Simulated assay, not measured.
Amino acid sequence: MRSGGSRRRRAPRPTRTFVSLTGPAGNLGDALIRREQLAWARGTSDELVVYTGEAPDAWLAQLGLAPGDAVLLRSKRSVPRWLFMLATAPSRPALVFEAGEVPLERGNALRELVFLAETVLVRLRRGVVVRPPRAIRAPTQPALRLHSLAARASQFALWRDATSLRIAAHGQLVPDIGFAAGRRDGLPWNARAELVVSLRGKRPRPGPAWVEAVTGFAAAQGLRIRTVVQVREDEDRARELASALGGEFEPWGDRDPVAQEALLRERYDGARLVISDRLHVLILAALSGALPVELVPAPTRKIADSFATVGLTDMSMDAANPGPRGITGFLTAQLTRVDDVRRRVGEAEVRLSGIEADVRAAIRSARR
Rank of each mutant, 00 (worst) to 15 (best):
V359E: 01
P206M: 13
D277Q: 12
Q141C: 08
R344S: 07
A319D: 06
G270C: 07
E105Y: 04
P251Q: 11
G186L: 07
A362H: 02
F18N: 10
R145N: 07
A348P: 00
T332D: 15
V71S: 13
F97L: 14
G64P: 01
G354N: 13
S288L: 04
G346L: 05
N190P: 01
E105N: 15
A94W: 00
S306M: 07
E248L: 14
R106F: 06
A61H: 05
R145M: 10
A117Q: 13
W159I: 09
E347A: 15
K302M: 11
G311M: 04
L110R: 14
F18I: 07
V359D: 01
D256F: 03
Q334S: 02
L165A: 13
L146G: 10
D46I: 09
E248D: 12
P292D: 14
W210A: 09
R237T: 04
V345G: 09
A238P: 02
A362T: 08
D176M: 05
A150H: 04
V79G: 05
R184N: 04
R145V: 08
G26T: 10
E212L: 10
Y268D: 09
D236S: 07
A89E: 06
W40G: 10
E212C: 05
P67K: 03
L124Y: 07
A219T: 08
E240R: 13
D256I: 03
P322T: 10
S3G: 10
L245K: 08
H147Q: 09
D69Y: 06
W59G: 11
A169S: 12
